[in-house]
Design a protein around this nucleic acid. Structure first.
Length: 155
DNA sequence: GCCAACGTTGGC
DNA sequence: GCCAACGTTGGC
């Protein structure tokens, strides 16, 4: 099983929104970056994903979700009324993908970005690198376990 | 193929 | 709100 991290702005869609969603599931739409898309296409059923809150008062990791459907075409790319509409994308040759994710747990407290930066063992994490903007990134087993322990969770 | 201009991300 | 870093676009 592989591990991942996905960013979302809590003012748009945060972990509480996922916990309240029907069947506690959502499709992760609106990704419009090729590298991030390619990572989503590598996700497999059962993979676990950190839910990262970005662009907010306390950026950091808020909890965990799980992949419950592997990549398929993002419906918003074909919807003229959606902000993520992509006129260059054709139904027989879609550019953008989504995966379905299910709520697993919310951490008792957000593991803050500032905290992650203090931990030597996490130095090489992708989201901690300078200028990083990717909204979907892989997380190594070592980093996954470390962050779970920071969150006070057993692995 | 180069690269300047532009739009977006996201921490602070 | 600021601004650095980055990806994309489009003229040449």
């Amino acid at each position: 099983m592989n591990h991942w991290l996905m960013k979302s702005e809590p003012s748009v869609f945060g972990i509480d929104d996922l916990a309240r969603a029907p069947r506690r599931r959502t499709l992760w739409d609106g990704v419009r970056n090729y590298q991030a898309r390619n990572f989503m296409r590598d996700m497999r059923l059962g993979d676990e994903v950190f839910f990262y809150h970005s662009n907010c008062a306390e950026p950091g990791i808020a909890g965990v979700m799980r992949v419950v459907r592997e990549a398929y075409p993002d419906p918003t790319q074909f919807d003229k009324n959606d902000p993520h509409f992509d006129p260059r994308s054709k139904p027989d040759d879609p550019r953008w993908s989504v995966v379905d994710l299910e709520f697993v747990k919310k951490f008792d407290a957000v593991v803050a970005l500032s905290k992650l930066r203090e931990v030597d063992a996490l130095e090489t994490m992708r989201i901690l690198q300078r200028g990083n903007r990717l909204s979907v990134t892989p997380v190594s087993n070592k980093h996954w376990k470390k962050i779970c322990s920071l969150a006070g969770e057993k692995t």
